[in-house]
């Protein structure tokens, strides 16, 4: 029965098994495995030079892994399967002398869309992203944000089942960022798998269902953003209020934060947060206005992990 149900399950949009890639003596990717289900947004993060670009290039079949296996929608990448992939590079992969409409149509044609389908989809997308009035403008005349929107349309025009986006939000204003976030979420809700390569951790927290972090070509972290954050709970207490905290026991370290009347009370391994809070109330005249148990942000976790790996 369970075999039957697994047969009915849709194949993984992307499945990397133990892939490795070296350039001469330099190891770019080492025994990396992760997968991405349909309709899921997976953040693929790592410091510069971690091996993200090599991994993406292997997924796109621009380079071949030395070992390991890559499956897209359950099979190895071939010609027809290429039409199921949408790739948005970090730089604008557009022709500056072409108009917005020409550029989108060109990429659509290369994805084997018929002219009639292409025409209706182009106008639909241009309307959706407020580019209709700019369709006859050359790419070079557009702002960076508008170029990015054009690039997004070119990437999505053929309704790919696997969407690979590299730093899609770099240097965009909040309005366009919001539009593009919505496009990604909508694409995922329509069943597309999204591999999101970014350094903007707040967007990972906001958008990603799961994250995979690599460093020096190897997997160092994976899980949902919540799972990852919980692995890094410190137990420290963030306090704000009025008064003096000097009466506390020497084993409790208090650190003054930049924000006025805010403090971080470091909780060592031997103490519990509630014990420390009781001590503050009992041993000092400090009037607590608010407190919270400190959890690392994904950005903190990212930095810590990179530092640990360096160490």
């Amino acid at each position: 029965m369970s075999d039957q149900s697994s047969l009915n399950e849709p194949p993984l949009a992307l499945d990397l098994s133990n892939i490795s890639k070296s350039y001469g003596n330099t190891v770019a990717v080492k025994d990396l495995s992760f997968s991405l289900g349909q309709g899921e947004i997976l953040a693929f993060i790592g410091p510069n030079g971690a091996g993200k670009t090599s991994t993406v290039r292997m997924i796109l079949d621009l380079i071949t892994p030395d070992s390991g296996d890559i499956k897209i929608l359950g099979r190895s990448l071939d010609g027809p399967l290429k039409n199921q992939i949408g790739y948005l590079p970090e730089e604008r992969g557009l022709y500056r002398d072409s108009t917005v409409e020409e550029c989108i149509q060109y990429f659509g044609e290369l994805k084997n869309l018929s002219r009639s389908v292409l025409r209706s989809r182009v106008s639909e997308w241009l309307e959706r992203l407020d580019l209709a009035e700019h369709k006859d403008k050359k790419i070079s005349e557009l702002s960076r944000g508008m170029q990015q929107k054009t690039q997004f349309i070119a990437t999505l025009i053929h309704k790919p089942k696997l969407l690979i986006v590299d730093e899609p939000f770099a240097a965009l204003d909040p309005v366009i960022t919001k539009q593009i976030k919505k496009i990604l979420v909508d694409a995922a809700s329509e069943g597309a798998a999204v591999l999101l390569c970014t350094h903007q951790m707040h967007l990972v927290e906001e958008l990603a269902d799961r994250l995979v972090m690599i460093n020096k070509g190897s997997l160092v972290l994976s899980g949902t953003p919540r799972e990852v954050r919980e692995k890094f709970v410190t137990g420290n207490i963030l306090l704000s209020g009025q008064g003096d905290l000097s009466g506390l026991d020497n084993s409790i370290v208090v650190e003054e934060l930049e924000r006025a009347n805010s403090y971080r009370v470091r909780v060592g391994e031997t103490l519990q947060s509630k014990v420390v809070l009781s001590a503050i109330i009992e041993q000092t005249s400090f009037e607590i206005e608010s407190f919270e148990i400190e959890k690392d942000t994904l950005e903190d976790i990212f930095l810590k992990t990179v530092r640990t790996c360096k160490g």
Binding site: R57, L60, L62, G79, K82, N83, I85, Y87, P89, E90, E91, R92, G93, L94, Y95, R96, F107, L110, K111, A154, T155
Partner: peptide, 17 residues
């Protein structure tokens, strides 16, 4: 050169042989 610089070539190669 343009395609190489702006990575359009990579996008092209994800679509065509």
């Amino acid at each position: 050169r343009i395609e190489k610089t702006n990575r359009a070539l990579e996008v092209l190669l994800t679509a065509v042989e």
